[in-house]
Structure formats: structure tokens, C-alpha cells
């Protein structure tokens, strides 16, 4: 995983209302499929937004290979290599599903014809080919997420950043999205932010636990679960959750 944050600081607000979310933050995302765990307000969305170049750090830099988001001439190439699924995916009123995905491709620098063709492939990858002609505003929450993922990968991104891709979905849809993430990670580096610990051990190669703008843990799933003693009759998901709770505390 080539995205790295070095000495990054980011805050919201000004003056006495200024609130630092990240301070002198260093992180190099590992290759493969990474899950970013943390409670609400831990800084997960800010971290992904910085990594996607949606936000710019007030100090420090974000790099991908030799590209840095601070340099204007690097930014276009950087953004072409990265796809982001925002936490709240919305339909553009009036557009059909394939049109919206093709539009995302065009916004990422593809020409109109390539974007139109790639949209079809991207929808096939998220198993939405049959919904291509449906108005995007008519999609269910789970379908919107999958369309959002198609938008994020329509331009053949090298890195996919998915912010809470399973939030608000029912268990069936969650399972579907997780399987999709597993499939995508075979060809693309994926970072997923979530505060749900179920099924982590089967889907992700590495785990980053973020709390209050600090990395509390960075390692493999096995290393995370090793933090707490094994208890009989506890499922893998419960084991991960126990380790996670130990890291960030019960109150969080």
C-alpha cells in the first residue's frame, strides 16, 4: 500500500473553537485489504479524506509513491490512482445508475466514451448490471453503496478508500458488501473504515485501530486478537471485538 501520511496535522474550526483531529500523524497504509477501526469521532473519515486528497493537511504531507497531494501538478495523477466511497453516497437527481457511474469516470479524467464503457464493467463488478438503467434516486441504501463502490473503481483506481461501506445496511446487504470488498482486494488495495468488528478476521489482512486521532494498533488480525486471551465458545468476531474494546476502552 503506497499511501503514506507523514507528520500530518488537521483541525476543524478557528481560534478558540479549533479542534485538532489529527496531530503530527504518521501512517503508512499496508498493502492488501486494510480495515480502519475506531469509535465515532476517532478521525477515520478525516484520515480517509486526507488520503483521498479531499482534504489537505495543515501540516505534513500525504504521498502516494512519489506523488504528493500538496503539489498541484501531482494532484491530478494522485486522484486518478485513488477512488473514494464517501460515507454518504447520494444520487444526482435525474441520472440513471450507469450515467452516474460514467459521470464519476469522466470526473476522474476518462473521456466520455471510455467512461461510458468502464461504467458497464464497474457495475458488473458490483453485480448491478441489471440496475444500470434504473434512476439512481430509486436505489435502496445497499444498492446506493454498491453504486458508490462502482463509482470509486470505474477509473481503475489503484487504491480504494471506502468510508463506512456497510453503515445502515441490513445483515444480508452487509454480507454482500463484505464479499464484494474481498473480491476487490484481490486486484486492488482497499482501505475500509468501520466501527463494526464482525467478520473482520475473514475479510481483512491488516487492522488499524484509531482513537482520538492516534493509532492505537497497527498490525495483522492475529496480532490484534492476541492482545486478549482466548476464551472458549467465543466467536472470532467476538474475539476481535474484545481486543478492540480493550484497546480503546469500554467508554468509547
Amino acid at each position: 500500500m503506497p499511501i503514506a501520511l507523514r507528520g500530518c496535522s488537521f483541525s476543524y474550526g478557528w481560534g478558540p473553537r479549533r479542534r485538532w483531529v489529527l496531530r503530527d500523524f504518521d501512517l503508512r497504509f499496508p498493502a492488501g485489504c486494510t480495515v480502519l477501526l475506531g469509535p465515532n469521532g476517532a478521525g477515520k473519515t478525516t484520515l480517509l479524506s486526507l488520503a483521498a486528497s479531499l482534504l489537505w493537511p495543515q501540516r505534513g504531507k500525504v504521498t502516494l509513491e512519489r506523488l504528493t497531494t500538496a503539489h498541484r501538478h501531482d494532484l491530478r495523477t494522485y486522484r486518478r490512482k485513488v477512488g473514494l466511497l464517501p460515507q454518504f453516497i447520494q444520487a444526482v437527481p435525474g441520472l440513471r445508475v450507469r450515467e452516474q457511474v460514467a459521470y464519476a469516470g469522466w470526473l476522474k479524467g476518462q473521456n466520455r466514451r471510455d467512461a461510458w464503457d468502464s461504467a458497464s464493467d464497474a457495475l458488473a463488478r458490483v453485480q448491478m448490471s441489471d440496475l444500470a438503467q434504473r434512476p439512481a434516486s430509486k436505489l435502496s441504501g445497499g444498492q446506493l453503496r454498491r453504486m458508490g463502490i462502482a463509482q470509486a473503481l470505474v477509473h481503475d483506481a489503484e487504491v480504494l478508500l471506502l468510508d463506512e461501506p456497510t453503515a445502515g445496511l441490513d445483515p444480508t446487504q452487509r454480507g454482500r458488501v463484505r464479499r464484494l470488498i474481498g473480491e476487490l482486494s484481490e486486484t486492488t488495495a482497499v482501505v475500509v473504515s468501520t466501527h463494526q468488528t464482525d467478520d473482520i478476521s475473514r475479510t481483512y489482512d491488516s487492522v488499524i485501530v484509531l482513537d482520538d486521532g492516534q493509532v492505537r494498533f497497527h498490525g495483522g488480525v492475529q496480532e490484534l486478537t492476541a492482545l486478549v486471551p482466548e476464551v472458549q465458545q467465543r466467536s472470532a468476531a467476538e474475539h476481535v471485538e474484545a481486543a478492540y474494546v480493550q484497546l480503546i476502552g469500554e467508554e468509547s
Binding site: 483521498a52 486528497s53 479531499l54 491530478r76 486522484r79 486518478r80 485513488v82 473514494l84 464517501p86 454518504f88 453516497i89 447520494q90 444520487a91 444526482v92 437527481p93 435525474g94 441520472l95 452516474q100 464519476a104 469522466w106 470526473l107 476522474k108 479524467g109 463509482q151
Partner: peptide, 20 residues
Amino acid sequence: SRLRRGGLTGWVPVRSPLRL
């Protein structure tokens, strides 16, 4: 305004706002 409602900036576009 339709593009705004579609949350277009969250798609991290490569093309400039002027262009799109």
C-alpha cells in the same frame, strides 16, 4: 444544484470545478 445535491465534491474529481 443537482450536482451539488449529488455530493459531487465527495467524488474527488480530477477535472477542475470550472471544467465540470
